[in-house]
Write a protein that binds this DNA or RNA. Structure first.
Length: 404
RNA sequence: GCGCCGAUCGGAUAGUGGCUAUUCCAGGAGACUGUAAAUCUCCCGCCCUCGGGCAUCGUUGGUUCGAGUCCAACUCGGCGCA
């Protein structure tokens, strides 16, 4: 049922165009996966998501386990039925919350860091201190979570995560991993990566056991490569995770902003060509060209939708903030020339008014535009890889987008 | 006309003798990468070489080492009585 077919490759040997087949339809790759953490892409109906160009949605194990609960999702007929989204769905394992509710919690640490910031060796004592007042604590067996909703205690292991994901009913699920902080030093990265490898095996074994007891086809499972900013660890992780019989791969963890390209390259040269690769949590326009060129087939990111809800709008001439004063009397669409629903029908002036008056429609219209913008870039990449014009398109787009 | 009450930054507020005048909204800008996110941060009297400097609680005077805070008069507003 799950299948990946490559149609054409970039001359550099890494980038490619393909089709992933899932029980809920085909995914033409490369493609951008829109994020719907709690079983909804915030402010959008499934029809709007589809019309904006998204082929597939990513939901989250941790959030849906807490509310409404995976059993409840199952009772509602699974994610697809619950959300009324008939296309493919993938679920993240909760591995990102290991980081966002762990060391990152309260410090607003993102998965990117400037290359100039040196890694901090995690001395046991320092690390223990960093773990205080956190909502996620990592142990060998799994992760102790304190609910972000009501403070209740929960334990997520690789097995538990996979079971929850089977209950949720996505087409593609992820192995449970630890997303490491960009501040982590070699020693911690190594320990964490090795544990993530053990978790990958446990996730896969659990997944296989569940599949054996099922009559019908189950979801595909992707293993996640970690290793952080370290070349040797990234390569080691790519080799190990490739050695397991996953259906595809995720590339996770944190990166040096300036050098993400290198890290993705190290990994994708090792991952088996014939299986799909998902770059987790990446989605700014420049990142997308890099990811596709370096051989990623899928990538998800909260950026287009979160930024949209805060007034950030992608345009061919770079990102603007539509709530800025200068747009109050601007009668142009968000991005002149854009073919999305929002740009076909509304002005910057109206949308800045919607934001200023905190009208819900502001979030919807902005999200529609940003998703359209991103999915459109990626489908153009697909077209230009097929026609042999990828390099030209990349130069043209990035030249204009980052002109200022 | 008499009496009572009130006047604090664009709006609303806190502040009854002490050092830097509070908070919310509005306004200006920034951040956001597997969603703790319709969130968060900064600025919001004037000047600045970004260290700071100078103002300021209706007005004027007074008491006091020290006043947004106490006193008096005045101005404006609200309420009541004529």
């Amino acid at each position: 049922m799950f299948n990946f077919k490559i149609h054409k490759e970039l001359p550099n040997g890494l980038g490619r165009v393909g089709t992933i087949s899932t029980p809920h339809g085909d995914i033409e790759t490369p493609t951008f996966v829109v994020v719907g953490t709690k079983g909804t892409v915030k402010s959008l109906t499934p029809e709007q998501i589809k019309e904006a160009g998204a082929q597939i949605v990513l939901a989250n194990t941790y959030h849906l386990y807490l509310e409404p609960g995976d059993e409840m999702v199952k009772k509602m007929g699974g994610l697809h039925k619950m959300m009324n989204w008939n296309g493919p769905i993938m679920t993240d394992s909760g591995g990102f919350q290991t980081f966002s509710l762990g060391v990152a919690y309260k410090y607003g640490i993102s998965k990117f860091i400037a290359a100039s910031v040196p890694p901090i060796e995690m001395v046991e004592e320092a690390y223990d201190k960093l773990r205080q007042n956190k909502k996620a604590k990592v142990t060998e067996d799994g992760v102790e979570f304190q609910s972000i909703i009501d403070g209740s205690k929960h334990f997520l292991s690789p097995e538990k995560s996979v079971e929850i994901q089977h209950n949720l009913g996505a087409d593609i699920i992820f192995a449970f991993d630890e997303c490491t902080s960009p501040h982590a030093g070699y020693e911690y990265l190594k320990q964490s990566m090795e544990r993530t490898h053990r978790w990958a095996k446990r996730s896969l074994d659990c997944h296989s056991r569940i599949l054996e007891n099922m009559r019908m086809a189950g979801p595909a499972i992707f293993g996640i490569v970690q290793g952080g900013r370290d070349e040797s660890l990234r390569k080691e992780s790519a080799r190990y995770i490739s050695s397991l019989s996953f259906d595809g791969f995720g590339i996770g963890g944190s990166f040096e902003k300036e050098d993400m390209e290198k890290a993705v390259g190290w990994v994708n040269k090792i991952l088996p060509k014939e299986k799909p690769r998902h770059l987790l949590g990446i989605g700014e326009p420049s990142d997308l060209f890099m990811a596709v060129e370096k051989g990623c087939d899928l990538f998800d990111c909260v950026s287009p939708t979160r930024i949209a809800r805060n007034g950030g709008i992608y345009t061919k001439d770079g990102q603007i903030n539509v709530t800025n004063k200068k747009y109050r009397e601007d009668l142009q669409p968000l991005d002149p020339g854009c073919k999305c629903y929002t740009c076909q029908n509304f002005s910057r002036s109206y949308i800045t008014h919607l934001f200023r008056t905190k009208e819900i429609l502001a979030y919807t219209l902005s999200s529609i535009h940003n998703i359209y913008f991103i999915t459109n870039i990626v489908s153009r990449m697909r077209e230009t890889i097929l026609s042999g014009n990828f390099e030209n398109y990349k130069k043209e787009f990035l030249g204009r987008y980052y002109k200022n």
